[in-house]
Amino acid sequence: MLNKIPNRKAICDTLLEEAAKDRNIVVLCSDSRGSASMAPFFEKYPEQSVETGIAEQNLVSIAAGLAKCGKKPYAFSPASFISTRSYEQCKIDAAYSDTNTKLVGISGGISYGALGMSHHSAQDIAALSAIPNMRVYLPSDRFQTAKLIRALLKDDKPAYIRVGRNPVEDIYTEDSCPFEMDRATVLRKGGDVALIACGEMVRPALDAAAILEAKDIHTAVLDMFCVKPLDTEAVIRAASGAQVVLTAEEHSPFGGLGSMVSQVVSENCPRFVQNIALPDAPVITGTSQQVFDYYGMNAEGIAHSAEKLLEKASRA
């Protein structure tokens, strides 16, 4: 049976649990508590909740001010708005001033499907990663999301976390979710193809590996939830052991995981690298799955791209 719990709810559940022990945890929303699944937090801990209204710049700056005074703020807003409307606040008040401000981009990527480009965040990885002292995380499923939030609660540095709106099929289980902060999780090993994915592209990447395996193409799969700081050792290890590398991300083709992996591979262990991503254009209207299917960002599409890239490499 498919999982019905979106990653955003896993964040709320984790913060609810931790807030009982730590009164410095503060949740901020910009008229977004419903979309963020944070309404239960506002109900249970009103004294640790801040509503800023539809004012994303203020959301981030207030969070930074709270952090500077010892609070542990988690500021929630749709990824499309927090990453661009509040970009300067993320850069200056969170990162440059080095405050313990955790920015959570909800409904990331093309989660809002048919709502149009205003509600899509296909630039957030590139934008936030380009800020010094800002970390960028895209957890793949609800179990990893919970572990990530618990790890982030233990540090005092700024970070951006992007999650999608819809439930995604589990990668891990309650009892088996290996997690080491800032280290990619190796989901499969294989000597032909290295597939490196983040966020909600991890599931189709893993399924693509199964398709390829059936064709005797052995595929390594990395869950690169830590896009920045990128686990470069894991990239080099996976790429060195494979003939070709593919990345998969719900993002623009520029400046995201694919760009970063390409830099590392080209510098350390040159291989063909193909980046499976959204187009550099407003995406076609549809649900997330329809859009992914259209652009080949599903298991079949990724597997097909991998085979093509292997052919290209063998001709080179």
């Binding site: 203020n58 001010g65 709270l66 500077k68 609070k71």
Partner: peptide, 9 residues
């Protein structure tokens, strides 16, 4: 805006 956060804290 940052002052608002500090005052809230």
């Amino acid at each position: 805006p940052v002052s608002v956060g500090m005052a809230l804290a």
